[in-house]
Design a protein around this nucleic acid. Structure first.
Lengths: 334, 334
DNA sequence: GTTAAAAATGAAAGCGCTTACATTAATCTA
DNA sequence: TAGATTAATGTAAGCGCTTTCATTTTTAAC
């Protein structure tokens, strides 16, 4: 592999000049530039990005921490981030936190030691204090899906409370009053916020929150399935189920269909996130949109702007969920 | 950030010695090692991986190229790769090819120039010649989801033909004879191989392949939905649909349900890949398993073994699909 | 107590690039 | 046309680490 030195030799110029044309910095005469380009082409020269990073103290890479690499939620987020960054010729190092404090921290360390110019972090478990300290460091950090006091200007997040409100209000307005709730794991902030929205909606309609109609799931199909079974088996009557995400809603609906319950005729369902798949089940799932891609877009552009001076997007911290009415909620009987 | 030099100063030893204890190479007396460890701890020293890479010509990073970052198929693949590699303290740089030749090549260039120690490549579009040449290079490469003559020892792939055979045989054995086929995009090898399996199964049963019952989709829900509409609207009779992947099957089933067709009573369906979601629709989708995670595991371990000398897994090139019988196929009437 | 072998350590030359600064060439001004 | 600007190029010192090779220290052998 040819080095910059080989190029300078062949072109008959100095290292500095080659570097200038490679990076398009400083003044270079057209004639010289051409010579250098020719030499680069002839040698099939490609800069060693590692050496560039070391010398310039810039890695042109940004670290992304998500809790999982797969799933309908993080996939689109990463896709959006990668796409924005790549079109600016930056690239992405991805690490997974697996919803574990130690792994999240280790991943951050890792990305930092890898010389990332910035971090986009979707941390579920680590404490606010840890994140505040992280933001103190010299590597710029954006937080996704999390609102942390004191560093609000670094957070891109969804108004989960409002989302929860929207979902539950919808079924309430359809006349349901016995409403089961399948929650996400409560160690996750968004799960707690959505639940809070639900409770608030209940209160608005003068209804008390009933522990017997509550199940703490895992944000996955399995949890919804299991939660639905538990709820049904408890014997408590209810006519609608609000699920803290679409995956659990899908699992819950699957169980209902297995047991021969008709949806939405006998039980209504609302989800959360508006992931693609449940649009293809029957009934099509009524849900609350989560503009995760927009948030990824925003985070990536923030990095472009703050770190590379390349974007002039206006920073928007808080994204609004919206109710997406489809077919899984029906008016309560009686 | 403390450098190795600071550590050497504080510990009162040379750079070389610090490097030795950091990398656990060469001989170092216990006493010295302890001094160095103390100094590192005191300074909160963490090696600069970029400098390490430059000096050692080893980046401890492996590049992964997939066609998409999201979706039910690539997510688990990446998860598995990241997990294996990370537990060996390597890390992953991910790039997306977006099913476009130029982008795939650019991504490979990018990963190469980034100094990856190895590449795991799921390339859909670039030619076999390109891949053969790539494998010639000094960076070791494993190919996933693709079988290329001449470099078969670098390929980890699924027996798609057999999978296609399994799927179609299943409906054939249930007595169907008018079988529609919704294919993946034919520029993709796996789509072609699966189709070939279908044709072969047809031939085994003395049936001719009928163009009128064929639709070329896109491996996404939309394509299945659209394909189903086209097929239905064509007026050609058929009692079963074989889909080249589960996503298209889901889209196709969704359309049927919209039109009030009962599945599987009126139309039977088989999918391919066995992704999680369609297990939660009704009817549960009969499909063919695609051990994508196993393949990712294998590819990652190959890298560990060949590049880092760390694994002693036995290399398995070809993975076998299996029929997963659920509820979406019913005996043909008459 | 020598001497040879082994173990521990250090000196220093890179790895391929960037960049401040110095130098030289070209252009302008009066 | 001398002197002052400005443009173009080159020199060389790093960036933080690894690694070869030489040197010193310790241990072993007799």
């Amino acid at each position: 592999m040819a080095t910059i030195y080989d190029v300078s030799l062949l072109a008959g110029v100095s290292l500095a000049t080659v570097s200038r044309v490679v990076n398009n910095t400083g003044k270079v005469s057209d004639k010289t530039r051409q010579k250098v380009h020719d030499a680069m082409a002839q040698l099939d020269y490609r800069p060693n990005t590692i050496a560039q990073s070391l010398a310039s103290n810039r890695s042109n890479s940004v670290g992304v921490l998500v809790s999982q690499l797969d799933g309908p939620f993080y996939g689109p987020l990463m896709r959006e981030i990668e796409s924005v960054l790549r079109s600016a010729n930056k690239h992405v190092i991805i690490a997974a936190g697996h919803s574990d404090a130690a792994q999240e921290k280790e991943a951050v360390e890792f990305l930092l030691s890898r010389g990332c110019d910035a971090l986009i972090v979707d941390a579920e478990i680590v404490t606010n204090d840890y994140l505040r300290e992280l933001c103190q460091g010299k590597t710029p950090v954006v937080l996704i899906n999390r609102h942390v006091e004191g560093i609000a200007d670094r957070c891109v997040h969804l108004d989960n409370l409002k989302g929860g409100l929207l979902a539950s209000r919808h079924v309430l307005e359809f006349g349901h009053s016995r409403i089961a709730y399948i929650s996400g794991p409560l160690f996750k902030l968004d799960a707690r916020e959505r639940l809070q929205g639900h409770k608030q909606a209940l209160a608005e309609h003068g209804l008390a929150f009933d522990e017997a109609l509550f199940f703490e799931g895992d944000f996955r199909e399995e949890g919804g399935y299991e939660g639905m079974a538990t709820l049904l088996d408890s014997g408590e009557p209810f006519s609608a189920v609000v699920c803290a995400n679409d995956q659990m809603a899908s699992g819950a609906i699957a169980l209902c269909l297995e047991r021969g319950l008709r949806v939405p005729e006998e039980i209504s369902f609302v989800g959360f996130d508006d992931i693609p798949f449940p649009r293809y089940i029957s009934p099509k799932l009524t849900t609350v949109s989560n503009p995760i891609q927009d948030m990824g877009h925003m985070a990536a552009n923030w990095v472009l702007k703050e770190v590379y001076g390349q974007s002039d997007i206006e920073f928007n911290h808080k994204f609004e969920p919206q109710l997406v009415v489809r077919e899984s909620v029906q008016r309560a009987l009686g």
